[in-house]
Amino acid sequence: MAQEVHLDSSVGYALKQAAAALRTAMEAELEPLSLTVTQYACLELLGQRPGLSSAELARGVFVTRQSMQAVLQGLQERGLLSRSATAPQGRALPTRLTAAGTDLLGRASRAVAGVERRMLGDRSPAEVVRLRDDLAACAAALEGPAAQG
């Protein structure tokens, strides 16, 4: 007999609730900047790691390569990023933020940081580190060898 999942005690369900609430709050803060959560995540990655390819960005933002192409095209049309016309090696075109992209990223990062502060409330720095480490361990456990079987 399969064990029943009780939503009121399910860690997975609570995690899904937190993820949905976080996304909704981020969307509300990013909407006045005309950014989606995915566009923001793309800008944030490029701000921290200039020159990433679209495939690397897709993996980092958790979208398909096809979806990332549309995101990059939209951001490039807005003048927020630039892409080389030719690849320095292979086929991957490195992507970088423009000055306008860097400016918008700064405003968006401040907005998202405010959402995270609200989410974490009055938790101590040690509690925040523990939460982050616990969530990373959960993700690693599902990505490990046992997850393949």
Rank of each mutant, 00 (worst) to 15 (best):
T24H: 10
T24P: 00
A25R: 12
M26D: 00
M26W: 00
M26P: 00
E29V: 08
L33W: 13
T36W: 06
T36M: 00
V37Q: 01
Q39N: 01
Y40I: 05
A41Q: 05
L43T: 00
Q48W: 14
R49S: 15
P50R: 02
A58R: 09
A58F: 10
G60W: 06
G60Y: 04
G60H: 10
V61K: 04
F62A: 11
T64G: 15
Q69Y: 12
L75M: 04
E77M: 09
G79S: 08
G79L: 09
P88Q: 00
P88T: 02
G90P: 01
P94K: 05
T95M: 05
R96T: 15
R96A: 15
R96N: 15
L97F: 02
G101C: 05
T102E: 13
D103C: 02
L104E: 04
L104Y: 13
L105R: 05
G106C: 07
G106F: 04
R107E: 10
R107Q: 12
S109V: 03
S109E: 14
R110L: 09
R117A: 15
R118A: 11
M119L: 14
L120E: 07
L120K: 07
D122I: 03
D122S: 12
S124C: 10
R130P: 11
R132D: 10
C138R: 15
